[in-house]
Amino acid sequence: MNRFHVHLNVADLDASIRFYSELFAAQPTVLKPDYAKWMLEDPRVNFAISTAGRSPGIDHLGIQVENGDALAAIGQRLDAAGVTVVPEEATICCYARSDKLWTEDPQGTRWETFHTVGEATTYYAGDAPCATDGAACSPDVSSMKPRTE
């Protein structure tokens, strides 16, 4: 089953962790000095916050899928929507190793569709093949080259 994903940039990580832990009645499942993530079942969401990125607010939305076939299926739907789709394969971001597809909706909201394949020890891999600017894990899709498949 797919899981909705929300990633917020926050100014005060500790205060935000306190707030969201109370709101969700749960402690983060991943907690790092610059990042926290809740993998919630009700609602079924991957909710992440970080201080490593842009101004406070919504960084991006997304859908976390369970396997590569589900990622490919969403990629086909994005292609059918006529938007630019930018792949990131075997990338490290948000303390995880993932295959991803990035796009933007008509308003410019970044969307990340991804399949997580393992954990990582760093927030992002600055020298790994990554579609990001190195400061945050969500790229400026409009400045990137679309996939050619």
Rank of each mutant, 00 (worst) to 15 (best):
L78A: 12
L78K: 10
D79Y: 10
D79P: 00
D79R: 15
D79A: 15
A80D: 09
A80N: 07
A80G: 08
A80T: 08
A80C: 04
G82T: 03
G82H: 07
G82F: 07
V83P: 04
V83W: 05
T84G: 07
T84I: 12
V85H: 12
V86S: 12
V86R: 09
V86Y: 08
P87V: 03
P87H: 03
P87M: 03
P87F: 05
E88A: 15
E88V: 07
E88Q: 15
E88H: 07
E89M: 13
A90V: 01
A90T: 05
T91H: 00
T91R: 08
T91C: 13
I92C: 08
I92F: 01
C93E: 09
C93P: 00
C93I: 08
C93Y: 05
C93L: 09
Y95I: 01
Y95E: 03
Y95S: 01
Y95F: 09
Y95H: 03
Y95N: 01
A96D: 11
A96T: 15
R97W: 02
R97C: 07
R97A: 11
R97D: 03
R97H: 11
R97V: 13
R97E: 12
R97S: 11
S98D: 02
S98P: 09
S98Q: 09
D99F: 08
D99H: 15
K100T: 10
K100L: 05
K100P: 00
K100G: 00
K100E: 06
K100Y: 01
L101S: 02
L101G: 02
L101T: 03
L101V: 05
W102Q: 05
W102S: 05
T103S: 12
T103I: 04
T103E: 06
T103P: 06
E104C: 13
E104I: 05
E104Q: 15
D105K: 06
D105P: 06
D105Q: 08
P106N: 01
Q107Y: 02
Q107T: 10
Q107D: 12
Q107L: 05
G108I: 06
T109K: 06
R110N: 14
R110W: 00
R110I: 15
R110F: 01
W111Q: 01
W111K: 01
W111L: 10
E112M: 10
E112K: 09
T113D: 00
T113R: 01
T113V: 15
F114G: 04
F114T: 09
H115E: 12
H115Q: 13
H115I: 05
H115A: 13
T116P: 00
T116Q: 15
V117Q: 11
V117G: 00
V117N: 00
G118N: 02
G118P: 02
G118H: 02
G118W: 03
G118L: 01
E119D: 11
E119T: 09
E119G: 05
E119A: 10
E119Q: 07
A120K: 07
A120C: 08
A120Q: 08
A120S: 14
A120V: 07
T121P: 00
T121M: 08
T121Q: 13
T121H: 12
T121Y: 02
T122V: 15
T122S: 14
T122I: 11
Y123S: 03
Y123P: 02
Y124P: 00
Y124E: 13
Y124W: 10
Y124V: 14
